[in-house]
Amino acid sequence: MADTTTSGLDKEQLRDLVADVLDLDVAEVTDDAHFVDDLDVDSLMALEITVRLEKEYGVRLAETELASITSLQSTYELLGHKLRETR
């Protein structure tokens, strides 16, 4: 069974959040779907994802980190890292 939690972060909950922001079916937000190329995320949607992540998980994402958020998997890994830092 694949590990779907990192530092208390549930990947399926994260998938639900991203799908909600993008107004997509959860099944479309696969681990490796590229936000821009595959899911047509524009800069406004990316900003909305960032704001929701910061609010939901109580983290602050630096501008330099935002470029690494390109898929659900990369978002999951960055959030896991940020949550471990805050402990």
Rank of each mutant, 00 (worst) to 15 (best):
A2W: 08
D3M: 10
D3S: 11
T4V: 11
T6R: 09
T6Q: 10
T6I: 13
T6C: 07
L9D: 03
L9Y: 02
D10P: 07
K11E: 11
K11Q: 12
E12L: 12
E12Q: 12
E12P: 04
Q13H: 09
R15S: 00
R15G: 00
R15H: 05
L17M: 13
V18T: 02
A19D: 05
A19C: 06
D20C: 08
D20K: 10
D20G: 11
L22M: 02
D23I: 08
D23P: 03
L24G: 00
D25C: 02
V26I: 13
V26K: 12
A27W: 05
A27K: 08
A27H: 08
A27S: 10
T30V: 05
T30M: 07
D31F: 09
D31G: 14
D32K: 08
D32L: 09
F35E: 02
F35D: 00
F35Y: 04
D37E: 14
D38L: 05
D38Q: 00
D38P: 02
V41P: 01
D42I: 04
S43H: 08
L44H: 06
L44W: 07
M45P: 12
A46F: 14
A46W: 09
L47E: 13
L47G: 14
E48N: 15
I49Y: 01
T50G: 12
T50P: 10
V51L: 13
V51H: 09
V51M: 12
R52Q: 15
L53W: 04
L53R: 00
E54T: 06
E56G: 10
Y57D: 04
Y57G: 03
Y57W: 05
Y57Q: 01
G58H: 05
G58M: 03
V59P: 01
L61D: 11
A62L: 12
T64Q: 15
T64A: 15
T64N: 14
E65N: 08
E65H: 08
L66F: 11
L66V: 04
A67G: 14
A67T: 12
I69W: 04
I69Q: 06
T70Y: 05
S71N: 04
S71R: 00
S74E: 02
T75L: 01
Y76N: 00
E77R: 14
E77W: 09
L78C: 07
L78I: 04
L78V: 06
L79S: 01
L79V: 03
G80E: 06
L83S: 03
R84D: 15
E85R: 07
T86R: 14
T86I: 15
R87I: 14
R87W: 11
R87M: 13
